[in-house]
């Protein structure tokens, strides 16, 4: 194992932990539907940046953790996040060279797909579905992506990940 593959793992874990906490942090009343899909965004970022170290299996474990924390069906987010990670890792060569806004659109599409998979699981198990305005969170994620990308790149560089 060379240095490049062992360095900075703590940053990945830390950011994912923060993302998990943000998923359950109470939002101001009436704004619950504006909560960005933090965990999905972070999964995408790490899949696009260090695909050799963060892939489908990590995303699966992360999804399980999210399921436990949210109290959703065990495996629901594991499924959606691992499919998300699969798509991101497959397309990462191409997406990495996109300009940032184009990247954001790509991210938005994947976020919508993640939501769709979740909805599909909910519908298949006859669980009550969220309201329409729940889709707002994907738009928030879209707007958030450029900022998240810059901040995370800076952090990753300092931690010696890239």
């Amino acid at each position: 194992m060379s240095d490049a593959t062992t360095q900075g793992g703590w940053l990945v874990l830390l950011t994912l932990g923060v993302a998990l906490a943000l998923m359950v942090l109470p939002m101001p009343f009436g704004l619950e539907m504006l909560r960005p899909q933090w965990v999905a965004l972070l999964t995408l970022y790490w899949c696009l940046t260090v695909p050799d170290r963060f892939g489908v299996f990590s995303a699966f474990a992360l999804g399980l953790a999210l399921d436990l924390i949210l109290g959703s069906l065990l495996g629901q987010h594991a499924l959606s996040l691992s499919l998300l990670a699969y798509a991101a890792v497959m397309l990462q060569q191409r997406v990495r060279v996109f300009p940032i806004w184009q990247q954001a659109v790509f991210v938005w599409l994947l976020l919508v797909a993640e939501r769709l998979i979740n909805l599909w699981v909910l519908a298949a198990t006859a669980t009550p579905l969220p309201a329409w305005d729940d889709w707002m969170s994907t738009l928030i994620g879209f707007l958030l992506w450029p900022w998240l990308f810059f901040v995370m790149s800076d952090l990753a560089r300092r931690a010696g990940l890239v």
């Binding site: 699966f60 436990l68 065990l74 495996g75 629901q76 198990t125």
Partner: peptide, 27 residues
């Protein structure tokens, strides 16, 4: 695919309640 299996196990058979309780110590 494993995730699908998990979903089915959790939804249909409620087998995972024990697992959930144990793992909740972590969460």
């Amino acid at each position: 695919m494993f995730a699908l299996g998990l979903i089915i196990a959790d939804h249909r058979y409620e087998r995972l309640e024990r697992v959930r309780v144990v793992l909740s110590v972590l969460t």
